[in-house]
Design a binder for these strands. Sequence first.
DNA 1: GTATAGTTTGTTGCGGCAACAAACAAAGCT
DNA 2: AGCTTTGTTTGTTGCCGCAACAAACTATAC
Lengths: 406, 406
Amino acid sequence: MTETADQLYVRKVNTVIVLDALRRMQPISRAGLSKKTGLNRSTISSIIQSLLDIHFVRETELVMDRVGRPAMPLTLDPNGGFAIGLEINVDYVSAILVDFNGQLRRKLYRSVNTNMPQHEILMTAIRMTTTLVELGREQELPFMGIGIGLPGVVDSHGGKLIFAPNLGWRDLDIGWLFFNEFNAPILVENEANCAALGEYRYGAARGVNSLIYLSAGIGLGGGILIDGEVFHGSQGFAGEIGHMQIQRDGIPCACGKRGCWEIYVSPRVLIENVRKSLQQGTASSLTPLLQRSEYALTFRQILEAAEHGDGLATEVLTQLGQDLAAGIGNLVNIFNPTTIVIGGTLTQAGTLLIPAIQKQLPNQVLAGEHALVQLVPSQLGVDACVHGAIALVLDAVMRDPTNWLN
Amino acid sequence: MTETADQLYVRKVNTVIVLDALRRMQPISRAGLSKKTGLNRSTISSIIQSLLDIHFVRETELVMDRVGRPAMPLTLDPNGGFAIGLEINVDYVSAILVDFNGQLRRKLYRSVNTNMPQHEILMTAIRMTTTLVELGREQELPFMGIGIGLPGVVDSHGGKLIFAPNLGWRDLDIGWLFFNEFNAPILVENEANCAALGEYRYGAARGVNSLIYLSAGIGLGGGILIDGEVFHGSQGFAGEIGHMQIQRDGIPCACGKRGCWEIYVSPRVLIENVRKSLQQGTASSLTPLLQRSEYALTFRQILEAAEHGDGLATEVLTQLGQDLAAGIGNLVNIFNPTTIVIGGTLTQAGTLLIPAIQKQLPNQVLAGEHALVQLVPSQLGVDACVHGAIALVLDAVMRDPTNWLN
DNA sequence: GTATAGTTTGTTGCGGCAACAAACAAAGCT
DNA sequence: AGCTTTGTTTGTTGCCGCAACAAACTATAC
């Protein structure tokens, strides 16, 4: 049974249109909103009045720069409420408090590791969230909800974590857990999807409503946005682009297949390969680093070596670029997105790799130059996920403000 | 500027809901519609009256099978209008006339070939369409539009063909051409997308609103439906799954890359491979066929040979199954669709290959058994495209009946 | 066989609500 | 003073939900 329409529905639709226009074009006057949305001035006035009543919108200072009666600019009211964005990842938990107008108010960060038992990590996350909730309450702001980003397969509709291989977690009803604790809307989403949403709302792909976020670190995750909405597939398992097979008889992957994309482009695997080459005696400026400590080699060091002309580093990174281009080409052929955001550890390689891949792409894509894709490095970095989590909460409120009116 | 809501919009939304419910559940009474949609009986009565007026709906015979006042069953009225579905392909042009209730009234088919100049093929298509339009007009039905399916990259928004490699056509404003000729709505779409829509509305995947249609013949095309809508990507180039690279150092493809999926699974390439093996003297029950004529070998013959236990045919088809499974696995990891429809020439291999692939898929998919995908052979065969073209037209009318009311 | 009760369908009139149009007040600019 | 633009007020229009009602049938008792 699809949602039927009546007067209440009309009001809701128009309120959402006004809120969205306001968010994107603030500050803007009632008359301006009327022009932008096509709604009558009197209608705008009425809707704005409802939004003023609940502190979703506030008036600022009259501006008298033109002929005619001066306009009263409106903005989203920071005092409308607050949302919390939370990311539980393999080596850290991060949480932020953001007000209704999208301003960051507080940020918390704690290191964790996979040796810690599940409940300890969860308790850490809950404590951090509690701190932020109390902070928001002190400022007398309504609490709008918590967005949670997790590194695994998520049933975002049911608010459950299905499987997080790198955490070693399985079948955890985290939505229920947090709802019991905080009694507010809880929105759970895959980490890469969150990051995609974050870059779309506040980062490198602002306003680009068809994008793919590549989250390369330990594995290779993908967040897909179509029409500004996270793409889940029919059961919520979409976006596992890291295990796209690009070499049928390739290197075995932990997933059981061979030649998965992530084996060729994951920074972790790349570091491993460099280490092996060094141990086999390949000459490189990186050799001393490895001798100093077993775990010294980082992706950044390899990058710097390449920038200084090191042969091994350059070779490995060139190969990485080609492997990245192959997979990205496949994605473009399949999705034809406007933008691809390179996130995770790979972001660091942005300036070095992106131009090379960008140049190579037309050869990888059937539509050639027609299918213009913009490759950009992540702008929010590790914060992309928590900001996306915030967007989950605020979007939900903006899309259905009914519960908040009156 | 998003579409704002007012009373007219309310009426439109509810009319669409009623039409859709009616299409799916006909015959159904006003009271039944009220229960199914949640709209009040009086509202349903009012909307149905408008639809009766324009012959979109008709009343049938009272049924008196239960207690209470007998119900008046309603159906879509075939006399509401007619649509034409057209497919211009490499070796044939096909056109059908269908009434508003989806009933096939007439079907035309003509062989063409790539030696014919573009304008001759177009004239053939226009003549066939003219015949059908006249037929519809004779029956005094309103003309609702023409859907056109083409084997190439299409700008469906602008109604233009961008590039059709197998036809050798490029930059053809076919929407404008047909609009000038017939002065009715013209909807242009890629052939595989049309077929996907056809199977979704009338064929093997009825009601499954997340599906991928694999159109394997000369190349390998893909039609993607998300939420029952054709997925175009940001510029309309999405769905080129045939040129997904599954073997980075694989066989060179006509597109310039190596190891594209379609080289491994296209029936045409498969036949070529069998022919080469035979010429190199591999023992097989197919050898006599090849000796009879250079062009005798068909996909069906290879299938039949395999069914009779021929070694070469079995080997080649087993390999095909594995290659299909690899690409399908990638697609499932990326899209997690409910259903994948195997169309084109490959349909014939359905009973032989599908069980094998289905069994192998959990190994190819990260979510394993969780991501349930149903593989089914095409039901409409070569007619899938024209039926999808019809759906394009009828869906457009059903989604915005405003122009037809009054 | 007839009368009465009960059920379901579809229609009608009314109230409420939201958007729109038009008229108007406010407050500046030229 | 006239013009321009903003925002409010008032009256109108159209649609949906609600509740009452008529219509038309079945069920059941006598």
